[in-house]
Deep mutational scan, measured.
Amino acid sequence: VKVFRALYTFEPRTPDELYFEEGDIIYITDMSDTNWWKGTSKGRTGLIPSNYVAEQ
């Protein structure tokens, strides 16, 4: 598990995607895809765009 911080707010387009706000901490559990990672924030899990976060 790696810890990342959201650089921007992300509004999901599908139920599989995770909503998060700029500054949120996201725990990444799967980075197997280059563009979409699986992450958890505020008790919810979903896909996030990798270019919206920076490693802490």
Rank of each mutant, 00 (worst) to 15 (best):
V1F: 14
V3C: 12
V3F: 08
V3P: 10
F4I: 01
R5G: 03
R5Q: 10
R5F: 14
A6K: 01
A6V: 03
A6F: 02
L7W: 04
L7R: 06
Y8S: 08
T9V: 04
T9A: 09
T9S: 12
T9R: 12
F10M: 05
E11P: 03
E11K: 13
E11C: 15
P12L: 05
P12V: 05
P12E: 01
R13E: 09
R13G: 09
T14P: 02
T14I: 08
P15C: 09
P15M: 09
P15K: 11
D16M: 11
D16L: 13
D16A: 13
D16T: 09
E17A: 07
E17M: 11
E17I: 03
E17Y: 11
E17G: 12
L18W: 01
L18M: 11
L18P: 00
Y19R: 13
Y19Q: 11
F20A: 04
F20L: 07
F20S: 01
E21I: 08
E21M: 09
E21P: 02
E21S: 10
E22K: 15
G23C: 07
G23R: 03
D24P: 01
D24I: 04
D24R: 01
I25M: 09
I25V: 10
I25R: 04
I26G: 00
I26M: 04
Y27T: 09
Y27E: 11
Y27W: 11
Y27K: 04
Y27G: 03
I28R: 00
I28C: 02
I28G: 00
I28E: 00
I28S: 00
T29Y: 15
T29F: 15
T29N: 08
T29I: 14
D30S: 05
D30E: 11
D30R: 02
D30C: 06
M31R: 08
M31T: 09
S32A: 09
S32Q: 10
D33K: 06
D33Y: 04
D33L: 07
D33E: 07
D33M: 07
T34N: 14
T34V: 14
T34I: 13
T34K: 14
N35I: 14
N35P: 07
W36T: 05
W36K: 04
W36R: 04
W36P: 00
W37C: 03
W37I: 02
K38Q: 11
K38G: 05
K38V: 15
K38W: 14
G39P: 00
G39F: 02
T40V: 13
T40M: 13
T40Y: 15
S41P: 00
G43Y: 03
G43Q: 04
G43V: 01
R44D: 05
R44P: 03
T45M: 08
T45C: 10
T45N: 08
G46H: 02
L47C: 08
I48N: 00
I48G: 00
I48F: 15
P49I: 03
P49N: 08
P49R: 06
P49Y: 06
S50K: 10
N51K: 11
N51D: 13
Y52S: 09
Y52D: 03
Y52G: 06
V53S: 01
V53L: 14
V53F: 07
A54N: 07
A54V: 15
E55Q: 12
E55P: 14
E55Y: 12
E55W: 10
E55S: 09
E55R: 09
Q56M: 15
Q56K: 09
Q56E: 14
Q56T: 15
Q56L: 15
